[in-house]
Amino acid sequence: MEQVYLVTGISAAQSRVEALVREHQTKLARYIRRMVGDADVALDITQDVFFSAYRTLQREPERPLTAGWLYKTATNTAISFLRRKKILRFMSLDREHDVRSLRIDERSAASIDLQAAMRRLPAEQAAAIMLTSYAGYSSQEAAAILGTSADAIRQRVCRALRTMRAVMTESV
């Protein structure tokens, strides 16, 4: 009896996660890749996000999981990854990380500039600018995702843009 319930629970959760994957996977993976600056890590984190969505749905099948939830989980995971990387860099245990974090295969100058700027931003500012300009959320929605106020988001966006502008206009 219990087993039957479990099986149906899994299939329901599975189909919902599948729909989420189909709809958001590419965008989410690109977003995370911009945040962490590394395609391999981004794929790992994307996978983790969908796994945790699956586990959550298994535990509470009634819970509505939206794109916002996915972005929230992704952002938190990416931020904790960035913090870990920062410590690694600080301890200079892993010099490779610095080189690898630049490897984004898009060739356009805008993409290179963006990534160069992203590397200089603190994680909170990076999340704010990526959620709004890149993922297309309004500052209210981004505030709900990050758990702050809309004003704080706008402030972070402004500070991030200031850094980015400096990166883009400086002659190499």
Binding site: V21, R22, T26, A29, Q47, E106, S108, Y134, M164, R165
Partner: peptide, 22 residues
């Protein structure tokens, strides 16, 4: 500056297939 970000996003080609990620 915001437009540059949008431009960078729209120029992206990286598209991991479901099989690749999962």
């Amino acid at each position: 500056t915001t437009a540059t970000i949008v431009q960078a996003r729209d120029g992206e080609v990286w598209d991991p297939q479901p099989g690749n990620v999962l």
